[in-house]
Every structure is written in structure tokens, then in C-alpha cells.
């Protein structure tokens, strides 16, 4: 089922949570709402679910206006940030809940419910946990129970609020890959909220970057990472060095003192900077090494530029060994790619 959000605004008192937001999600897509806390992403998700009413604008599900529909009528599955599993029920009863509360005429038979729950348990790889209580499960297992419970009612849309937010880093990574595979298997239109750029870029077909109640950019991982629409998106999607500069003939230049006409903010990601012992090309500048962290897949070098600005450069281990960098060494920094936003 497709989702269409049209010109939605929402205020909480004097706080504008969403301002004129429009968004379309195609059937079968997996979309991430990405943004810092307070950016309105959870509010947008809750409005799509029917848990909040927009002050203005409308929500269309499968082309039909659903703005006035209650959550029960929208056929959405919602996975809560802290799972909201029913503590007093077993895993089985949790998943069966949505089927058991149906009016008698629409309720599947006991055997059907049993079959469906067991199928879902196998899908989320918890078939041996049916009789456990939520308290006896790990965080990742609870997350998967919550997902199975939402899927049990065969929702047309799956909505997930910070689905991995409460998990530790390792489980998080495993689980998001698993979610991606699951989505490829069942293809239900899904929207999830996250503040973790890596998570959004890795899992989603498309990423919606939000900030202060507005959508900054919508696009594939590739789009938003390599072709950010504005400084916010560039900044939010990974480490970045920010320089002052100017744009001349469509070409950005670093220019520490630049002001006025043609002044631009120039962004460079740390891995797009190189270090050499000699100046090279028109963009290179002199800097002094202040700190080196060689642990990890890349070597993180911190420098201070000749005009006194801290700069971060990520080098490969080979390049680092080749250069034989020392602390306090004077070197040249060479940008391989500049991205400029004219102010």
C-alpha cells in the first residue's frame, strides 16, 4: 500500500513539530525517516499511524484519504521504540493478541491462529521461545517479537519507531541486516524512524532527512550521501570538515578570509583529504599534525591548519605507513573533492 503525506503541519503548543511536510512512499518500499531528536520524525510516523492528528494537511493510504480514520481502521502495524510487549502474556499470546481481539465473525479459528503465530515465530527465528515471557528474552529477541506481533494482523504498512534504539551496538547491526532481508522477503511497505545515519543508509531504499520539522532531502543512500542538497544533510550524514571559501567560475576554492560576494561554505569529508609532505595542486594548504589515532580500519589524523582551524583527515593504514607521520610534523593537506554551498 502506498503512503502519501500532503502538506502536513503539527504544533505542540508553541513548538512547531512539523511544518508543511509532504512525502510519498511507494508500495513495497522501505523508507527511513532520519534526523536529530526534535526533528519531527517520530511525530510524522505517529501521524501516518493515526496516533496523532495533523493540525493541517492530509494522509492518503493507497490513494484514499485516511486523515480522519482511526488507527484501528488504517491497517498499519506499529512497532514501538521500547517494544510495548505485554508483560503478562507469553510470546505466543503477544503475537496472537491482534487476532484474538477480533470480533467473533472475523476471528480466525484457534488452529489458524496457532498456525499463523508459529509461522511468524519461524520467520523471526524464535519458534522455540513461544512459551516464554517477554522478561525472559534479550533485547533483540523482544524486538523481533514486537515485529512479529505487528505483522500478525497482516498490516498493509509497517511503521517502526527507532526499532533498534534500545539495543547495544553489536545486536543493532545484526538486527538491521536481518530487517533488510526480512523486508526483501515479505515486501510490506515500511517506514522506520532513526537518528543513526549509518542505520538509515544501510537499510533503507530511500532516506528522508528531516530537521526542525521540515524535510531537508529525500533520496537513495547514494543520493543523500554523495549529493547532499544542503549543508545540514552533508553535516548530518557523517564526519565533515567545514571551510570558508569562494566559488569562481563554478569551481570551489578554499579561502580562509573569504567574505561577501561569492563566499561559500566548503565541505570535505575526512576520507577525501590526503596528506603529503610537499604542496600539490591549487587547493593544498599547510597544517601541523596535533594527534594521531592509528587504531581501527582507518587512521584518524587531527591537524591544525596554517590559519588555525582544526582539520580531520582519515588515511588508510597503507597511506599512513607510507607517510611515516609524526606528531607536530608540518605537512600539506590536499583535498580530493570539495563540495561548496554558496551562502
Amino acid at each position: 500500500m502506498s503512503i502519501e503525506v500532503r502538506n502536513v503541519s503539527k504544533n505542540f503548543g508553541t513548538f512547531a513539530a512539523l511544518t508543511d511536510v509532504s512525502l510519498t512512499v511507494a508500495t513495497g518500499e522501505l523508507v527511513a525517516l532520519l534526523g536529530p531528536s526534535g526533528s519531527g520524525k517520530t511525530t510524522l510516523l505517529r501521524i501516518i499511524a493515526g496516533m496523532e492528528d495533523p493540525d493541517s494537511g492530509s494522509v492518503l493510504l493507497e490513494g484514499e484519504d485516511a486523515t480522519t480514520q482511526r488507527i484501528q481502521q488504517r491497517k498499519v502495524g506499529f512497532v514501538f521504540q521500547h517494544y510495548a510487549l505485554f508483560r503478562h502474556m507469553t510470546v505466543f499470546d503477544n503475537i496472537a493478541f491482534g487476532l484474538n481481539v477480533r470480533p467473533r465473525g472475523l476471528r480466525p479459528s484457534k488452529e489458524e491462529i496457532r498456525d499463523r503465530v508459529m509461522r511468524l515465530l519461524r520467520l523471526v527465528q524464535l519458534d522455540r521461545m513461544a512459551d516464554r515471557r517477554p522478561a525472559q528474552l534479550s533485547g533483540g529477541q523482544r524486538q523481533r517479537v514486537a515485529l512479529a506481533r505487528a505483522l500478525a494482523v497482516e498490516p498493509k504498512v509497517l511503521l517502526l519507531d527507532e526499532p533498534f534504539g534500545a539495543l547495544d551496538a553489536k545486536v543493532r547491526k545484526e538486527l538491521r541486516r536481518w530487517l533488510r532481508r526480512l523486508h526483501d522477503e515479505i515486501h510490506v511497505t515500511s517506514v522506520f524512524v532513526t537518528h543513526d545515519q549509518e542505520e538509515a543508509l544501510e537499510v533503507a531504499d530511500r532516506v528522508v532527512v528531516m530537521n526542525e520539522g521540515r524535510i531537508e532531502q529525500v533520496g537513495t543512500s547514494e543520493d543523500v550521501y554523495h549529493h547532499p542538497a544542503n549543508p545540514f544533510v552533508y553535516n548530518f550524514l557523517g564526519d565533515v570538515n567545514l571551510f570558508h571559501g569562494r566559488v569562481e567560475n563554478g569551481q570551489p576554492y578554499l579561502h580562509p578570509g573569504a567574505e561577501g560576494e561569492g563566499h561559500a561554505l566548503v565541505f570535505v569529508r575526512p576520507h577525501l583529504l590526503d596528506i603529503q609532505h610537499e604542496p600539490s595542486g591549487e587547493h593544498s594548504f599547510k597544517a601541523r599534525v596535533t594527534h594521531i589515532n592509528p587504531a581501527g580500519p582507518v587512521v584518524k589524523v587531527e591537524l591544525i591548519s596554517e590559519w588555525g582551524q582544526p582539520v580531520q583527515v582519515n588515511l588508510t593504514q597503507e597511506r599512513y605507513r607510507e607517510l611515516r607521520l609524526q606528531k607536530d610534523a608540518s605537512v600539506y593537506v590536499i583535498p580530493r573533492e570539495l563540495k561548496a554551498f554558496i551562502e
Binding site: 505542540f12 503548543g13 496523532e52 492528528d53 482511526r70
Partner: peptide
């Protein structure tokens, strides 16, 4: 009520 929709 302020803001929050009463879904309950």
C-alpha cells in the same frame, strides 16, 4: 487536551 490526540 493539549496536542496529543486521544487514540486511547
Amino acid at each position: 487536551t493539549r496536542g496529543q490526540k486521544r487514540i486511547l
